[in-house]
Design a protein around this nucleic acid. Structure first.
Lengths: 242, 242
DNA sequence: ATAGATATTTTGGTCCACCAATTCTTTGTA
DNA sequence: TACAAAGAATTGGTGGACCAAAATATCTAT
């Protein structure tokens, strides 16, 4: 098998070694569970050092392609990478926050989630959603609990959307926007408005009509987005004055 | 800086070391372009050997998170756009369920980008978009060039949308779906269909009517999504038969 | 002949010395 | 004093020795 991979030039970047190995492992000719040749053998076949082989294999292990077992060998896993979908979320975390842009993207994703949920939500989930509305209503004067119920409301919708990538993305975005959401709901009148909006989304979900749900969530996102941006602007103004 | 990462236990899997570094690098407190501490220093701070650090950093480099320069140091890369470099077929590692989810999320984001672009696109950008359509038309028989023009078409729309978060997200998603896009355009008839769809999006953008643009991009995404899923399914079936 | 214990071999993991590449500091010259 | 060149220090890259873990082979007892 290692003869089939071919040699690479000494000094080749470890990424190129990884690519060579990956191309071979994803060529479809290797069965999951197969044991790869030993590091020393791979190094010899590829014409590079064992360190480079180890580094390439470490990357493939992190990506979930192979399973490295000390004393035993390296095995092809053949299962889906759990790490790769997370790259979308890393991208959100790199560099300076772009809050206004995040707010816009988040709106679209929340609307999409709601639309999917309109068709997929179970009765039990709908019932639970009602509980979150009740919790928000009961805690108009308690910001922490209100926000918690608010968050659970959105979480449940994203869950009901049955799209893990979407769910994870929304989670990451929410964590980035969390501080602004909390600041935007500082007063009880604002909480009341937010409750009204959530109630409308909930009522639309009860109809299970995707268009109605989309309209209600769009309205909520529009208002919530303005609330967030106002909070952001106030903060900027205070920053200038401060 | 390295003191802020904390120590890890000796014998910790290199994947855990990579995760630790990754969490730190995506914490938002590090500026892109920043030089990380030297490998020897990281090893000391983390309480592990330099080999383990090297292996973890090698993985992060392959993922596009860092840039390792011999003799100079290791640098945090600039942006989300640099994640998942083209050298590897990332999409092959994702698995069918996550890939399908990603296709759905991508559709929504592309539609959103197109809608924004309808209002924001400059005349120069519109003209350039027409050039990409021409390039696609001229290269129906040359898959590599066709796909390159296809990609540039979408890139330009995302750019015109003037939302960096959205742009970066779409970039990462494209990296993850690239291999399936390429395989899905294997035949000239498929390229012709794709060209027709892109032309309709372009014509709608010429009107600058967001609703028309949304409708055209939605239609394109629906067809393209089916094409992608069909390609994915064929690959899965072949894998089983192989 | 078979099962269990022990020894040996093979595998991945770690460490260190040394080399290649780059950066920083010092020295020499105009 | 400013600039260029040389030297030293720092950085990542490589290979080999040795250790830890697991697999395989050999030996012994029944």
């Amino acid at each position: 098998m290692s003869a089939a991979i071919g040699r690479v030039d000494t000094g080749t970047a470890v990424s190129a070694v990884a690519k060579r190995l990956l191309d071979y492992l994803t060529s479809g000719t290797i069965e999951p569970g197969t044991r790869l040749p030993a590091e020393r053998q791979l190094a010899s076949s590829l014409g590079i050092g064992r360190s480079a082989v180890r580094e390439a294999l470490a990357a493939l292990e992190i990506l979930g392609i192979v399973d490295v077992r000390p004393g035993s060998g390296t095995y092809l896993r053949g299962s889906a990478s759990e790490l790769l979908p997370e790259t979308l979320n890393w991208g959100l975390m790199l560099g300076a926050p772009r809050t206004k842009e995040l707010i816009a993207v988040r709106s679209q994703l929340e609307i999409f989630a709601a639309r999917l949920a309109a068709e997929l939500m179970t009765d039990a989930q709908l019932h639970q959603l009602g509980n979150h509305i009740d919790a928000m209503r009961s805690n108009l004067g308690d910001r922490t609990r209100f926000i918690e119920a608010d968050l659970k409301f959105h979480l449940l919708i994203a869950q009901a959307a049955d799209n893990q990538v979407l769910f994870d993305l929304l989670q990451s975005i929410r964590s980035l926007l969390r501080v602004w959401v909390e600041r935007g709901l500082a007063r009880e009148e604002e909480a009341q408005l937010a409750l009204d909006e959530h109630s409308r989304v909930y009522e639309a979900l009860l109809t299970r009509d995707p268009n109605a749900v989309e309209a209600a969530m769009s309205a909520h996102m529009l208002t919530a987005g303005h609330r967030l941006e106002r909070t952001l602007l106030q903060s900027t103004v205070e920053g200038v004055a401060g």
